[in-house]
């Protein structure tokens, strides 16, 4: 009689224990999901794409485990909790790294923008020194338009920086710098070609 009661109590205790383990880890799920979402908000989709994918994959694996346990009679979310914790840790680790990566991209963009600006300014200043009137005026007029095109493109670089799209800003600034340098070389060449500087002031 004593042993029968013992087994009944033990059985009940086990059931209670099993039921205790069987609660969906809502808090952990929310926490892991929020951590991954925060990662996107931080800009990981631009500056830590691969890490973001890993965090998302970890979260998916954890959620699959949750789903598998949801379908069971005797649920055990221990493994799910472990996977959710891993997803959260991954996300938090990546999140901590994103600002540095973002800052690095920002510095690179600012540097590329500055280099492009300097190159355009140099081309502009050379054009300002170029002789007015005849000689290679056709070339100079065309180059002025080229510089105007470069300045418009520079404004787009600024817009990208303002929008936090630093990598795209760098990718846009570099060709501007190259083209401006090419223009400066052409302007110098054109200036050397000018033999006579004169300006028509008559009625035409």
């Amino acid at each position: 009689m004593k042993s029968k009661s013992f087994f009944m109590i033990a059985g009940l205790a086990m059931m209670v224990f099993a039921a205790g383990c069987g609660k969906q880890p809502v808090e952990e799920i929310t926490s892991a999901k929020s951590a991954v979402e925060a990662l996107v908000a931080e800009g990981a989709d631009k500056y830590a794409k691969e890490e973001l994918k890993i965090a998302n994959d970890d979260l998916s694996a954890a959620m699959a485990e949750v789903k598998a346990q949801d379908e069971k009679t005797f649920k055990n979310y221990d493994k799910a909790k472990e996977l959710l914790a891993k997803a959260k840790t991954t996300a938090d680790t990546v999140k901590a790294d994103v600002p540095a990566k973002k800052e690095q991209a920002k510095i690179a963009a600012a540097s590329a923008q500055e280099a492009a600006k300097t190159a355009v300014e140099e081309a502009k200043s050379l054009l300002a020194k170029a002789p007015k009137g005849k000689g290679t005026q056709a070339d100079i007029e065309a180059m002025k338009a080229d510089v105007a095109g470069l300045e418009q493109a520079l404004a787009e670089v600024q817009a990208l920086i303002d929008g936090g799209d630093y990598n795209a800003a760098t990718e846009k600034a570099n060709p501007i710098k190259d083209k401006a340098a090419e223009l400066s070389a052409q302007i110098k060449e054109a200036m050397q070609k000018v033999a006579k500087v004169s300006k028509g002031g008559k009625k035409k």
């Binding site: 056709a138 070339d139 007029e141 065309a142 180059m143 002025k144 338009a145 080229d146 105007a148 095109g149 470069l150 418009q152 493109a153 990718e171 846009k172 570099n174 060709p175 501007i176 190259d178 083209k179």
Partner: peptide, 22 residues
């Protein structure tokens, strides 16, 4: 001798083509 307006767009096109190259 249309070196003012059209060239501006040509420069923009050249820059975009270079960006595409990268």
């Amino acid at each position: 001798n249309e070196g003012r307006l059209a060239r501006n767009n040509l420069t923009r096109a050249e820059l975009l083509t270079n960006e595409a190259g990268t």
